[in-house]
Design a protein around this nucleic acid. Structure first.
Lengths: 164, 164
DNA sequence: TTTATTGCAAATTATTTGCACATCA
DNA sequence: TGATGTGCAAATAATTTGCAATAAA
């Protein structure tokens, strides 16, 4: 029950920040924030809708999209793209990047600092400021790598035979 | 005119590879390949269609999509996602990553080798094999960076105040 | 000939929008 | 009360698919 209380607290926090951004606190918004907090992570808009509708079936998917956008503009939610059109949303508590396994669909988070060097290199060498924050890094996780007999089907060719 | 001849040659090469993959050489396919070669780079499916239709208006967008997929399966074309749903296609001649400026929409290519070391590090640390090949690295190019008075609106937070 | 390809229209998927009604501050 | 938010249905945008007609090998 303690985690439950923590969750409730977090919900209140988020709603407070929403309110302080000049937005109203409504029932759909309460449910949507609660769903995000409960999931503790990555959800598609539709997954949010399903979770919310378990509590209140009248909440419409369009409202979920609009609320998610509002939450994002208020800085409490972030969305990233996993590739083929679908976006996933999560609370903006920690700054991290996402490693998305194209094989099993798992999402691993890595601290932003992990890629600082990479970004610095790109910025320096190519006069370009990367912002992977809203984008996942696609690839294959170790699990799937092992399963497929070290024969990664990775669509790019990160493999040895890079033609450079 | 020399570059024209080179282009023609390249078109023949690509069509040959397509044929050797067991596919038929048709008029739409000739035009589509020619468009990709002429553009020398990144095009959306619709841009390809427009270019093709300048030569033969009867070629349908659906055919462009199907041909692009066929070309990709034959290994002569690659597509990457720039973010919001749109995919871009290009010939698979050189292995490179794409730096996509979210502000002006420009795409800069960087050789794959440039980031290999860094990615290898990620792979080692997180047991994950990235394949940015089919994905662009989003961010802001130097131009737009300067234009916006060093006040990057980059959605992630690549900025100093990383919360780690 | 006979199987791959094409054109066209209709279907999908993910998301957005117009609008009249409901509701929060 | 009066602006903000909501449900619903319809609109988009990008891409895919069924199918009968067409063309390559």
């Amino acid at each position: 029950m303690t985690s439950h209380e923590n969750e409730d607290e977090r919900v209140v926090q988020v709603l407070a920040q929403l309110a302080s951004s000049g937005h109203r606190i409504t029932n759909p918004r309460r449910h949507i924030v609660a769903a995000l907090v409960a999931a503790g992570g990555h959800m598609t808009a539709e997954e949010v809708a399903v979770a919310v509708q378990a509590h209140d079936p009248s909440v419409h998917l369009a409202t979920v999209y609009r609320t998610l956008e509002t939450l994002e503009r208020s800085g409490v939610v972030i969305h990233i793209h996993l590739g083929h059109g679908r976006a996933i949303y999560h609370l903006a508590d920690s700054s991290h990047y996402h490693l998305y396994c194209q094989v099993c669909g798992s999402v691993q988070e890595i601290p932003q600092a992990a890629l600082d060097n990479l970004f610095a290199t790109v910025a320096r060498s190519y006069d370009f400021e990367p912002s992977l924050g809203h984008f996942a890094i696609l690839g294959t996780c170790g699990h799937c790598m092992a399963r497929s007999g070290s024969k990664g089907r990775n669509s790019g060719g990160t493999s040895p035979e890079s033609i450079a």
